[in-house]
Design a protein around this nucleic acid. Structure first.
Lengths: 359, 359
DNA sequence: TCTTGAGGTGCAATCGTTTGCAGCAATCGT
DNA sequence: ACGATTGCTGCAAACGATTGCACCTCAAGA
């Protein structure tokens, strides 16, 4: 048997693999494999010998071979449909980083306008991710079956579907709606209105429910509702125009998202010549970064993004190691953030006194 | 040999594979494979028989086995570092959709603040994507070698590195700078300034070069330059404050990106009580969606995103099929879009007369 | 001295495809 | 009528890892 000296010159071509390392180091392929596997039994000095040499050669175990044999991909797919709403890039970034830290790879699937998540899901599962996070509208039950058959688990992020058993992570939207209602009423607003997003989105519904219920509870039974049909600046702009044509027009508008609220404010100002907040208070929900810009200074209810992300990753990790999980849903409370798009409280105090100038 | 009837009841467990189909249909595994491979020779009726049955069972070839044997992953990694700049979500969405249509899967890698693309690249190539699109700062030459050794090709998007041979796709930033300079000068501005982004980014440099050169060519030799240090609203806000403290203060500011321009406008208005565009013209470059909002109505130079994306995908496809490609770089011209953040031309005409109200 | 066990390593089967090559039946030209 | 061609299909060897099992060595205990 020919004795090999380690670190022999690169034979041309041929991607380097475990076999190559094994030959060079006079060990078996199994040993190479075990050196890379944390819980495998292997002599410490053997492991470091392998790892060092692998490092010099730039060797890493082939992920496809690994996935093939272990039936695990360490891939999480993310389906996102509305990147034009700044909340989603923020969420996407956070999720991507947190998943990466937890050792997952992220595969991205955007939903083109005109298509539904249902259309994309088959594609998303075609690479057999272990999980798919759906940051979008809901998935039909038929599509859910397809995913299940493929062995892919679905998780909703910022969505929930009361009719399905899909795990979800959301902020407490109803609580948010309630807080905004309180704030409006506490600051003397009386003609209250809501601008909705997508009609059937759980976010639209929950925020509306929380808002309206609190209004009713405090004696304001007829809250106006205007459909926005989507979560976008344009939607807010147009819905606000329709809404403000009422007589009397509302003096407080809760928008189903920050980006809707920004469109709403703009319409109120330019189309009706009204002042915000003197004539109309406007609040959103999300607390996107833009909301803090001085030009907007939007009162809003913050989605606790960090904790939502943390919960999502935790959920994935637990399901992944097979812990039969009783917590199928996370609903996390956020905080109201009062800025200058709503009337100041009677006392004149604001929760954020600083004029939000960039630090 | 036992005769199998097609469509037998699901044996429990066991992900279904080509072998299973082959047995059920009394053909070989090769035939199953060929049915899915467009250019394989196979009798049309055999193919449709296989495909139909596969469809009923929900079978799809295992991508890991495919990648393993073919040494191709059909995966494109995208490294993006600044999702808070709305240009990148827009670009990301477009790229993601175009790549998907071309049959590629997209793996997303975000660069956490405090880390560089160099830190992320090893991770990005660990899943052996065939390409990695870098929408971020530049990659060191050491990291480039690592990628090359792993067989992954790098492509810059909206970046270029004159010192490397990495393929890139950018818009004609220098042309953009020149167009803005012309516009400023044509509309009577005389004290011209530039707010930079990241100091060493090619975008910062090229836009500056185009802008300054044209200014000089037209007789305005001393163009002021203020560092922004990053492409963000806050950076623009702060840089504008420093810039406007000059005496005399500038009457036209070209910002290295739209998002910087928005911050700049806000600072000019709130910190100095000046009017835009009456006292100061402000222009950006990118033409992000927000730039068209009535509240901003930003004059800018549009990045031809669609064509840049098209070029990127074409580049990838061509390299992928081994066409030795002479076009290693795409530099695509955009258009100036005059809105209301800059003084109107003497004639009073604007290229966009419509007040940009959401359609 | 012999047995036992622990620690470490190698063998070989396996994951689910692709693809060059060989084989075989049917068709064609002469 | 017969060899050549064409059109399909199957065989079997990869691809590059993981892992249960067997085996070997050496130290400790009896």
């Amino acid at each position: 048997m020919e004795k090999k000296t380690a670190d022999k010159p690169e034979p041309p071509g041929k991607r380097i693999n475990a076999k190559r390392l094994a030959e060079d180091l006079d060990v078996s392929i199994s040993t190479i494999s075990r050196a890379f596997n944390k819980q495998a039994v292997i002599a410490p000095e053997t492991r470091s010998k392998v790892l060092d040499y692998a490092d010099r050669l730039g060797y890493r175990p082939n992920p496809y071979a690994q996935s093939l044999i272990t039936q695990k991909s360490r891939i999480v797919g993310i389906i996102v449909s509305h990147l034009e709403n700044p909340f989603y890039p923020e969420a996407l970034r956070g999720l991507s980083e947190a998943l990466r830290e937890a050792g997952w790879h992220v595969m991205l699937f955007t939903v083109p306008s005109g298509e539904t998540p249902d259309d994309i899901l088959p594609l998303a599962i075609s690479y057999q991710p272990e999980f798919v996070i759906v940051m979008a509208v809901t998935i039909s039950s038929r599509a859910q079956e397809v995913a299940e058959r493929a062995g892919t688990k679905l998780i909703y992020f910022n969505r929930r579907d009361p009719n399905s058993s899909i795990f979800y992570v959301v902020c407490d939207n109803a609580h948010g709606g309630g807080m905004i209602a309180d704030h409006f009423i506490d600051t003397g607003c009386r003609r209250l209105a809501y601008i909705a997003g997508f009609q059937n989105a759980s976010t639209t519904l929950d925020r509306w429910r929380g808002f309206r219920d609190r209004c009713i509870a405090r004696g304001f039974a007829d809250v106006w509702r205007e459909e926005g049909y989507s979560f976008s600046y344009e939607a807010g702009y147009r819905a606000a125009i329709r809404l403000m044509k009422r007589h009397p027009h509302p003096d407080a508008v809760f928008c189903a998202s920050d980006i809707i609220a920004l469109g709403c404010i703009e319409a109120v100002r330019t189309e009706f010549g009204l002042r915000v907040p003197e004539d109309v208070s406007v609040a959103g929900l999300d607390n996107i970064e833009m909301a803090a810009w001085p030009s907007h200074s939007l009162t809003t209810y913050s989605q606790p993004l960090d904790r939502m992300i943390e919960a999502s990753v935790k959920l994935i990790e637990e399901i992944s190691i097979g812990a039969e999980n009783e917590t199928v849903a996370w609903q996390i409370k956020g905080d109201i953030i009062v800025r200058k798009s709503t009337r100041p409280p009677p006392g004149g105090k604001r929760s954020e006194v600083v004029p939000d100038s960039p630090a």
